[in-house]
Design a protein around this nucleic acid. Sequence first.
DNA 1: TTGAAAGCGCTAACAT
DNA 2: ATGTTAGCGCTTTCAA
Lengths: 344, 344
Amino acid sequence: MGAKRGAVTLEEVAREAGVSLATASRAINGSARTVRPEIRERVERAARALNYTANAQAQAVARGRTNLVGLVVQDIEDPYFSSIAAGAMRVAEANGLMVSIAGTGRRPDKEIEYAAALRGLRAAAIVIAGSRTDDRDALERLGAELDAFERSGGRVALIGQRRLPVDTVVVANRAGARDLATRLTGLGYRSFGVLAGPRNLLTATDRLAGFTEGMAGAGITLPPDMIVHGEFNRDGGHDAMLELLARRRDVECVFAVNDVMAVGALAALRSRGLDRRVAVAGFDDIATLRDIVPALTTVRLPLARIGAAALEMVLREPAEGPHRRLVVRGEVVLRESTPGVRRG
Amino acid sequence: MGAKRGAVTLEEVAREAGVSLATASRAINGSARTVRPEIRERVERAARALNYTANAQAQAVARGRTNLVGLVVQDIEDPYFSSIAAGAMRVAEANGLMVSIAGTGRRPDKEIEYAAALRGLRAAAIVIAGSRTDDRDALERLGAELDAFERSGGRVALIGQRRLPVDTVVVANRAGARDLATRLTGLGYRSFGVLAGPRNLLTATDRLAGFTEGMAGAGITLPPDMIVHGEFNRDGGHDAMLELLARRRDVECVFAVNDVMAVGALAALRSRGLDRRVAVAGFDDIATLRDIVPALTTVRLPLARIGAAALEMVLREPAEGPHRRLVVRGEVVLRESTPGVRRG
DNA sequence: TTGAAAGCGCTAACAT
DNA sequence: ATGTTAGCGCTTTCAA
């Protein structure tokens, strides 16, 4: 069977069933009751016999639309993004869509490149998670590309990047960090350090800003030398923690702007024998890290729901007019890593 | 600009540049020096002016091939799979390919469904990670679908599923678990328990079998009631650990068939105050878990490399004849979670 | 209800 | 080197 090179085409199915191409198309992929049940049955049998699967590309060209959606993340290996992706993929599956994922490795240029590629694929929609640069130029070019994508008929949703005029799921990083600071000061901490991540990453800077605000609400100021910037990953947290310890030994509580960095910070503290003396808090509440010891105080983000919400938003008919904006708030979860200040 | 609905077509670019469709095609997407630099420049300028991006679907239909590869994983949120995906995506990017990812949620049917969808998309290749069921029927249907996919011109690589006649990256689960058992017995442990995962998951059963072999090599037999089956995730490890404790209190060392389960087991032990008394080992060496306390003894698998290797293998010209098979071995990493038996 | 035929946007012979 | 034209596999008018 299938001696011929290449895939079975609809024409072969039609011939096998003894009907026209058009009828075969209607019977298999077309709309409902325009074809007689008997014929339909015959066509379907032929299709099955030949193991026919419609060429989605050809359908896309003919129909002028695809069932492909694009998802752009920084790094699929990072649990933050893999959870978002999982949520988006569930929605895609529920809607019969295929998902094309691309990882940018945190290079803004790649985002633009992939957006263009997805425009080339005529993707129905594109969701970008993690475009959080504040680089004016890159942002502008991304905006232009997304604009072109929308004009060509696609829909766009961003996660977190509130500076572009498209549908957006906004994560309340600032508010979450503020709440966290409030709770931590409530626990009696007075001397804080922040492992702040990259300077040009909005997610990171928002969390830093929110935390500072929360501290201010308790009448505490964050000294500049208590802020250490670094990479947004485990090693970044580790190294920043060591740097902070080199600068100041009087820190009571450290806020790492994400959980993965917090884990690095804990490792650094452990290597110095300080893990019992310095409290650590993170952000995200990464599922894989919920069992670490000490259990990590953090701000829980419903990551999968965020990914799902972004795709759902973009799949709904566009609300012409202002772009939609869904704000997702995090919830502070206090755990053992911030036991509170012992008095006496 | 772009007042017209829909995307800019090559024809518009050609008209704008005052050349024929064919010339425009050659200048932009075609092979090299068949078009005069001057004209090429003119076409490129027109394309840029109109913000043209080739319709990849139409190209695919015309060329008879795509630059899309499919990746099927069980659950992208699971770090095991997200690392594999990251590796595959790196290779895809290096080769100018787009990656379509699908998650099956561990349902073999979904694997078949997605394979069919990818055949419909005329994907150049498809990599399936985690098809490890031993369900005869599902396996057969998957085999048939992959066969159809290959006959229609696509290439297939499997990760781990050695029972299907296609290119495969085989993870030496058995050997890894055997080595692990050998090392653990060498540490002085004599009484073992195994948190074995699902009965019908080959990855899990292979690891159990290998571990049993390794123990046998040290003259130890694994009593049937020391084996507890359960889910392949954190909760599965947690619950299985509790069940094991309910059955036997004399276990010295527990082997969880993957790291995520091991983390669950550690949590269970901790809840019983036994985390200092029972040693725990896992499998995979998940990056996100490398900093947990106690540091987890495990079998390191180069997951990203495995994903990369699978795609690379399938991208190379098919070695007609027997299907290729790349065996990846894991490496035992002893850490604090298995400190060894104290004598005296 | 069915079929013939004109596209969809692009590539690749085949001419010139 | 460039243009003409016939496809690629499918959908969708438009007739019948």
